[in-house]
């Protein structure tokens, strides 16, 4: 059943992610990459490159984008869209930072990922 209310789930602290880096969160629906930019913005997207499924959380983070470690597609962390000439997108997952603690909206993931 699709929950309507958004359920924020704590996943850790901003400090746990290196600046210009990422960590991943495992869920029954698959892995989520949680990214922290140089300016301390945090984004969460599916950890699954639209090209051939590369683990985006292992890529190099620059600006608000990540470059996939397998074949260098560049994915926007804000929109989940592939940049440049490549086409494809990944789901973005809402994240909230409260007092340095991180929450993701897991239901959003569950409903969309089914």
């Amino acid at each position: 059943m699709n929950a309507v209310t958004v359920n924020w789930i704590a996943i850790g602290a901003v400090e746990d992610i290196p600046p210009r880096g990422a960590r991943c969160v495992t869920t029954p629906q698959g892995r989520i990459g949680v990214f922290r930019t140089a300016e301390d913005q945090v984004y969460a997207i599916e950890d699954h490159c639209p090209h051939r499924g590369g683990p985006l959380s292992q890529g190099i983070v620059h600006g608000a984008s990540v470059t996939c470690p397998l074949h260098n597609w560049v994915i926007s962390l804000e929109t989940g869209e592939a940049q440049g000439a490549d086409e494809g997108s990944v789901k973005t997952i809402p994240v909230k930072v409260e007092d340095g603690r991180l929450f993701i909206a897991i239901e959003a993931l569950a409903t969309e990922a089914v």
Partner: peptide, 12 residues
């Protein structure tokens, strides 16, 4: 250490 471990496992 952070490089090798998932940050969290949720929803299981």
């Amino acid at each position: 250490k952070h490089e090798f471990r998932p940050m969290a496992a949720v929803g299981f």
